[in-house]
Design a protein around this nucleic acid. Structure first.
Lengths: 182, 182
DNA sequence: AAAACGATATATCAAATTGATATATAAAGG
DNA sequence: CCTTTATATATCAATTTGATATATCGTTTT
């Protein structure tokens, strides 16, 4: 029974900075947050409804032409819920790496397949690392360094781990090729 | 619509080595695999039923005393499904790090809370790293090095990333403390 | 100017996963 | 003998995933 809806905290965190629509929230999550958290429309819209019923957020419907739009705003109660969550020291951290799963179970298969799987992973990481570095550099240049320290820290986490991944990829490929095999 | 049940592949991968019960499978997942994949009973048992219906595995009921036990065995069709999955180059790799989420949104809160959250994370990683290193050392000492190369590679991935995490923790704590603040 | 295209915006659904709980037996330890 | 831990299966609500549907708006291509 997943008792706490984690997406709620993501949404409250985003709304604590600015009012947003569900669509905006999705865009924010797909941005700087995406490398350590995910969210989907099927997740976001029901959460917005639920939180509105709980009084954690309020909605404001507008219509520009024939276009409907609902913007959400965090309430004091919502702000309190966010703070409570921030103070709880328990946090679930987990990774699901299908690439490692394939490598782990790939022993029975040809070594070439394993090497190729690592190469595909490596390319993806290189791409992601490039994006993150650009984001990080833009932050460094920003005047208000103090305000961006938390964004910098999460970005540097991503960069450090991605760099570790790449080192591992090089080592793993070398090992698999050296030992010849199937 | 999550079209592919990933747990199926984990189970087939495990069954490709030995016959197992659902309970055994859970234990295996909680072991060497746990740092890059998770599984629960509520996930495993339905998957076993489903795969039996699909003919990917066969079951063998036994009863020792008043105790029932169902052991599963992989079929040729199941083995093919596993091989097909191994060859598919697409793989979803993602992490969900609540610690980073808290750090990212914690800017509005006191700096002490952020430092504490990092410390809690750090302790967990140190503990996990210790376990992984022991596992890795045991593998190195194993006579059949060739057979264990894939297990070593996944373990070394964990060690490398955990070490990167710890370096980041040190840096992040230092940064937060240096800048004083709230 | 019309058509095509991509971005904006909300909503919904089946399937999969999570995390907890329930139940019962066997083994181990004090 | 009793308590605790390990074995073993099952089920459920809540949550998440990933896809699909629908419709409008703005920009670019024919």
């Amino acid at each position: 029974m997943a008792r706490e809806r984690k997406i709620d905290m993501v949404i409250l965190g985003l709304l604590s900075h600015e009012d947003l629509t569900g669509y905006d929230i999705k865009k924010r999550i797909d941005g700087a947050i995406s490398f350590f958290w995910k969210g989907s429309f099927g997740n976001i819209y029901p959460a917005l409804k639920g939180m509105e019923n709980q009084g954690l957020i309020t909605k404001n419907d507008t219509s520009v032409g024939g276009r409907e739009k609902t913007t959400y705003h965090i309430t004091e109660s919502g702000s309190d819920a966010l703070k409570d969550w921030l103070k709880e020291e328990q946090a679930s951290n987990e990774l699901k790496y299908e690439t490692l799963l394939k490598l782990f179970f790939g022993g029975a298969e040809s070594r070439g397949v394993s090497v190729h799987n690592i190469e595909v992973f490596e390319e993806q990481i290189q791409k992601d690392l490039k994006v993150l570095k650009k984001y990080s550099e833009a932050l460094e240049k920003s005047l208000d360094v103090e305000d961006h320290i938390y964004y910098s820290l999460t970005a540097s986490f991503g960069i450090k781990t991605y760099e570790a991944y790449l080192k591992w990829c090089a080592k793993a490929k070398k090992m698999l090729k050296q030992r010849g095999g199937k």
